[in-house]
């Protein structure tokens, strides 16, 4: 059953969600919240991929989403391990208190 929603609606929704994630990365200091904002951005891209896939009848978009999810899972594991070891060494998860490599 075909829907009557134009593809552009999905693309604009995806853009808004992506930018919400960007705002999170720019304005927050908590490393875990920044990490979650990155997940928001990944999911916004996934949404536009699935939309393109469904509207063009090509499976490639959904395959890419599958691989992006796998990469996101790997990123989650490594990213949270980094946050954990950061907290262990610096007793903070606020990114502006970690300025060891700041020039």
């Amino acid at each position: 059953m075909p829907t009557s929603i134009p593809l552009d609606y999905y693309l604009i929704l995806s853009a808004v969600l992506f930018v919400t994630g960007v705002v999170g990365v720019i304005t927050r200091r908590n490393a875990i919240v920044i990490f979650m904002s990155i997940e928001l951005m990944l999911n916004a891209v996934n949404l536009s991929m699935v939309a393109f896939s469904a509207y063009s009848g090509d499976i490639a978009g959904q395959m890419f989403v599958f691989f992006i999810m796998a990469v996101a899972a790997a990123e989650a594991a490594v990213g949270l391990a980094i946050v954990l070891s950061l907290f262990r060494n610096k007793q903070t998860v606020y990114v502006d208190e970690v300025n060891l490599m700041k020039w």
Partner: peptide
């Protein structure tokens, strides 16, 4: 994009 309908293969 002009795409207003899901592809029939969706």
């Amino acid at each position: 994009s002009g795409a207003n309908q899901l592809s029939s293969k969706a």
